[in-house]
Nucleic acid binder design. Structure first.
Lengths: 214, 214
DNA sequence: TAGATTGTTAATCGATTAACAATC
DNA sequence: TAGATTGTTAATCGATTAACAATC
């Protein structure tokens, strides 16, 4: 009893974590092993105060009078994000974007392992991408039943996205990374992360036309 | 004098605009021509109050006792975003992702016209994607000098991204859509929109490991 | 006209920034 | 020890929500 109830970490804080990690990686590559919140602030463009607030949501990683140990903080943030572990993923929709993602995740992050790819297009079925054969989407449900998959990546058109999402949920994935330009409904215990490219492009168009708001 | 000084529209509002537009498009497709902020609220997941606040930043598009005219609002938001106009774009980096974007923008939005593509890879130079020939990146500067380009899309690796960004800025683009997993510096009058896929994927990993924060 | 729903002001909530005591 | 810089509380700022008068 009297247990400290864990405060929910705000979305804003969480979405800054990968950026911290990127900058710490850069510092490590430059053989800089120590940094103060003030110096990091100048690099990353957040206030020193915000950096300290953000990090203290997860623990006291710094040391008064010294700053932060770059390597330690880099590794801690990796653990907090959970990217010290491996994730088994499937990609549904293997057009240009699906193939790009297959190569991208493969290239940038070893922790995300593409175990299977699916498509409805007979021209793509049977193709090998990064050594993984593209299967007929018809077999998606069976495949999910027989294999434990962490993340489903949706690279289909918007018409198919919901149906695929439903199958992924029923198949037991923990998270869905959705690139289809539509908002899909998923079980409430499934994590959904959208990449709405068209929204991003339209936002860019807005700012080009309204530079005073930028 | 006494001119109403235009309040800066907040980033949060601006980034909701494309989503409003998508939902209005869906409604139009379903032949629904009228909607109240309350009904739209249930579809889109923002509060009715927020919807009215958001829209009133740009004008009084609704009518008391009636709601909003779907078609009119859809078109207004398109104009506000500036996607009633056409934009000439170039894509630098024509690997899987660059090709995906070339096809994507071509497919989803007629308003973004890919005029040229560039790469350093001899295997890709000369290739035709959607009827556009991939040129040697060496000619990027000259091309920008001779052609008026609105948007530069960076699909290179992170090592080349800054150099390409600098050339795009010097070449007079108005905006840059950056897919390289790095933060680039651009002239302050150039609009920069980042799509950091790795950040998005890492955020997904975070939420899978901390569902209580989701 | 009566009912519905907006546009807009005021209240609340949450996130960011500032300040400084704690401490390495 | 003295100086530097964190961790954390308090103040501020901005965004969201609630309320309701205006009006179609």
């Amino acid at each position: 009893m009297n247990q400290k109830l864990p405060n929910k970490i705000s979305n804003a804080v969480i979405r800054r974590l990968p950026k911290y990690r990127r900058y710490l990686e850069d510092l490590l590559n430059k053989k800089i092993y120590r940094i103060s919140s003030k110096d990091l602030s100048e690099l990353i463009g957040f206030t020193a105060s915000q950096i300290r607030q953000d990090l203290n949501n997860f623990g006291g990683f710094g040391q008064q009078g010294y700053g932060y140990n770059v390597k330690e903080l880099y590794e801690e943030i990796g653990k907090i994000l959970g990217i010290d572990k491996a994730y088994i993923v499937v990609i549904v929709g293997t057009g240009n974007l699906g193939q790009a993602i297959a190569n991208y995740t493969h290239f940038y992050r070893t922790g995300f392992i593409v175990n299977a790819m699916f498509d409805v297009n007979p021209k793509l079925i049977g193709l090998r991408i990064n050594g993984v054969e593209v299967m007929d989407s018809e077999y998606l449900q069976d495949y999910l039943k027989e294999n434990s998959i962490d993340i489903g990546i949706i690279c289909t058109n918007k018409e198919s996205a919901q149906e695929v999402a439903t199958k992924l949920c029923e198949g037991g994935v923990k998270g869905i990374w959705n690139f289809a330009p539509v908002d899909i409904d998923v079980d409430e215990d499934i994590i959904l992360e959208n990449v709405h490219l068209s929204d991003s492009l339209h936002t860019l168009a807005y700012f080009i036309n309204h530079p005073q708001d930028y």
